[in-house]
Each structure stands twice: as C-alpha cells, then as structure tokens.
Write a protein that binds this DNA or RNA. Structure first.
Length: 423
DNA sequence: AACCATGCCAACCGCGTAGCC
DNA sequence: TGGCTACGCGGTTGGCATGGT
C-alpha cells in the first residue's frame, strides 16, 4: 500500500517531459518493453519515477494512441458509457481504442459536462436538470420501499427498473437482503437507468429471431419477460474488450448491446468460442468470470471457424444456451450446479447471488447484503435486451453447426419459459 | 499592450488491490 | 497470514494557451 517506493527517491524530475526524455523512454520501451515500471527509469536513464514513466507512456508515447480531437461519435459513446459506468474512465477508455482514460476524463470535465448542461441534462445523473433540481429541493422520502408501483428508488430518485422489484421481493420473501441493496451508488447513475425495450419488443424480437432461424421451431411458450432490466456482473470489466457493444449503434441513447460475461465452460463447448485471449487479467474466480471478447480490429476473431463470425452488427452472439443459464436467468436453477456454492465464499457476484438466492439460501448469506450492494453498483457490465434480441435475431444465421444452435435455441426458450413460470 | 479570467491538458497524488514472499 | 511491492485507477493540481476587457 501507500505510495510507490520510487516516489520517495530524491532528485527525481517532475513536471513536463522534455523531448529528450520522451525519446529515451520510447527507445527503451520499444527495445525492451516496459517490464517492471519501477526499473524503467533507471534502465532508460531517466530521472523520473516509474509511475511517471508509465503514465507518460500510456498517455502520450504509446504508438497506438489516436491523436486529434474527439469525433461526435466518440463523444456520444463516452456519454453513453458514462451513463452506464460512471466515472470509470479506464473502462470507458477500453471502448474507445486509441484514447486514454486521462484524455477522456479531461474531455468529460472540460467539454462534455458543459454540453450536457447546455442540453439540460445533469452530467452526473444523466437526468434532465429540472428533475434533478426537483429531487434536490424535495428529496423523496418514502418508507414504502416495497411499493410495486414505482421503480424509483425512494432515497435516490433513480429509476431502478423491475429488477429491483425482483430483488426486493426476493429479499422480503427470504429475508436475506437488506433493503439498501437496492440503493444505487451515484457514481454510476446510469447503471439502473438504461432505456429498456418493452417486453413486447423483446418478445417480438425473440420470436422473429426464432423465425429467422431455419429449422428452428418452438415447442414451448414464449416466456413472459418479468423484468425490464438485467444486471450481470462482470468480474473484470476493466479489461480490454470485456464489454460488447454495437459499433453501429453508437449514436443510440443506450448502450444497446452490452453483453454479459459467459461461462468459460460454455466457451469450451460446442460453440467453438473462446474467452478473451489477450486478457491476462482475466484471472477468473469462477465460472462467471470469463469474458467473451470482441476484437474491434478483427471482429470475427472470436470464432475459430469464422462461421459464427461477425454479422455486421459489430458483435457476435455467442452461446445462447449457457449464457442464458448462467447469466441471464441464473436463478432458474438450470445453470450447471457445480458453480452454485463455490462462488459464495468469495465476494458474491450477481449471477451467483441470483443463482444462489432462490434455492436454499445459507444463513450466512444474510450477512451478504453489503456485498450484494457492492455488486449491484459494481455491476459493470450490463445487459440490454434490445441489443441482445437484435443480436440474437440477426446473428443466428445459417451456419454449419446450425442444428446444434437451433436445438440450443429451442431448449433455451423452453427453459426460459419454465423459468418465468417458476418466478 | 497589459492584465485577468477561463479552458484545456499533462502530470501528479493518494488510495485500493493483486501478487509475491 | 500479514507485510511489502508494484500496478492501476480516479481525483486533483498546475501550467500553458486563448480570449476578453
């Protein structure tokens, strides 16, 4: 903990970097890589601390940096991502290739905030300013946190979506979750306010998706979709490519194709899909921690065969079956059983919680409210059904493994149906 | 031309945390 | 298990550039 040891060393230069210093650092890193940053200044002959070198490299010298002004599309994307991720600049930066977190942060503070205010939008909450002012003037205090007539969190005024009901109801019925779990952190105000497609749209897209899949027929009911919003915990959203988004929808008002993490076991199954190969930080605490990746430079790279590759939307549908089981409807009990308890010993993750909540809940979980709350606000990857449905309907093109996909698809619908019947 | 205010951006600072011993 | 090191992140600061008076 504490400060980097090199920062204590004396006679280290501070302030702006000279071209000579830049050259030294650049030469050193291009020749040897940075390795351990604390040794870089010494090896490169610089009177700087390693931290400073790292920052200079990341923010200025890195060859893949994009120079120049931000485009409108980039700004839009930043706004959208900020609505979802809050001030998690590094995560936002991973969605803007060639841009650094520092750059984005500066842009946000200097330009975007101002623009949003001019448009009458509060940059912190992404709500209309008038609404924010009103809530400040008269903060809503309601004792009836269980009210089903409103999705607005009474303490914060932030729309929670129906998932909050699910949680509240779950908490009430099982007495497992303190009510504060529904309280969103203002840091990521948009977290719970994604514009969500109506159920009808989901069903419509779901059915049209099915219809678009040759040989796919339903033997079960199309389920009622019981919530507007899904939050899926991504164990390492900060890592590169861990968020899926549709490049073509950058001007949309929502992050419409953010996908949840998917089980690595899923990846190794018939789908031929791979977890992110360039993500050494995907340590993975369990089945939910792996990530699919979308390589902006090579959109079809996640498919070993290419047959399930990019469909023009900018992302690929991966395994529907396990995805649904382990991430979208994790509480259904349809997910692989092996994961159900193991994860609870660690920080409780969304899917684990939801998965673990409905079956017999260990008494110890009563103490996990805080963890849950943290996970709620840490739900750094979110899942918007609109994008999912669009992807579903458009990605499932005839492929060589179509019978498998078709079968999975069919099973998924049956399971979804069963799941919702059980809720 | 001089001064001041404001904006922008690079860099710093402090903290959290993973990994190692 | 606890301490230490190193890394990464987000907030903040400071200096330069620009525009207005």
């Amino acid at each position: 903990m504490g400060r980097h040891s090199c920062c204590y060393k004396q006679k280290l230069r501070k302030g702006l970097w000279s071209p000579e210093e830049d050259e030294k650092l650049m030469n050193h890193i291009t020749k040897h890589g940075h390795g351990c940053w604390s040794t870089v200044p010494k090896l490169a002959g610089l009177q700087r601390c390693g931290k400073s070198c790292r920052l200079r490299w990341i923010n200025y010298l890195r060859p893949d940096l994009k120079r120049g002004a931000f485009s409108e599309e980039e700004e839009d994307l930043i706004v959208e991502l900020h609505a979802v991720l809050g001030n998690r600049w590094s995560q936002i930066a991973t969605r803007l290739p060639g841009r650094t977190d520092n750059e984005i942060k500066n842009l946000w503070n200097s330009c975007i905030k101002k623009k949003l205010r001019q448009k009458g939008i509060d940059p912190n909450t992404h709500k209309p300013l008038a609404e924010v002012d009103r809530s400040k003037a008269a903060p809503a205090v309601s004792a009836d946190r269980t009210s089903e007539s409103s999705d607005v969190d009474p303490s914060s005024g932030v729309v929670l979506g129906n998932l909050s009901h699910l949680l509240r109801e779950t908490a009430q019925s099982s007495e497992l979750l303190p009510m504060e779990v529904t309280k969103p952190r203002t840091e990521a105000p948009g977290l719970t306010r994604l514009k969500l497609p109506p159920k009808e749209l989901f069903l419509d897209q779901l059915s049209s998706g099915r219809e678009s899949l040759p040989g796919c027929h339903s033997s079960g009911q199309i389920p009622n979709f019981p919530f507007q919003q899904l939050l899926c915990y991504n164990n390492d959203i900060g890592s590169r490519n861990s968020l899926w988004y549709n490049q073509n929808e950058s001007s949309s008002s929502t992050i419409s194709t953010v996908m949840p993490p998917v089980s690595p076991s899923t990846l190794s199954t018939s789908t031929g899909l791979n977890p992110s190969p360039d993500n050494p930080r995907s340590r993975g605490t369990g089945i939910h921690s792996a990530q699919f990746y979308w390589d902006r430079n090579n959109p079809s790279s996640s498919s070993s065969t290419g047959s399930s590759g990019n469909n023009g939307l900018g992302f690929e549908l991966q395994s529907t079956s396990s995805l649904l089981e382990t991430n979208i409807f994790p509480w259904t009990g349809l997910a692989p059983e092996k994961e159900s308890q193991v994860q609870l010993e660690e920080e409780l993750k969304w899917p684990e919680l939801l998965h673990g909540t409905f079956p017999d809940m260990p008494a110890t979980m009563q103490n996990l409210g805080h963890s849950l709350y943290e996970d709620v606000v840490k739900a750094e990857s979110q899942f918007n059904m609109e994008g999912f449905c669009a992807a579903w309907s458009q990605n499932l093109q005839p492929q060589q493994h179509l019978p498998v996909v078709s079968d999975m698809y069919d099973k998924d619908l049956q399971r979804m149906s069963l799941s919702f019947d059980n809720i």
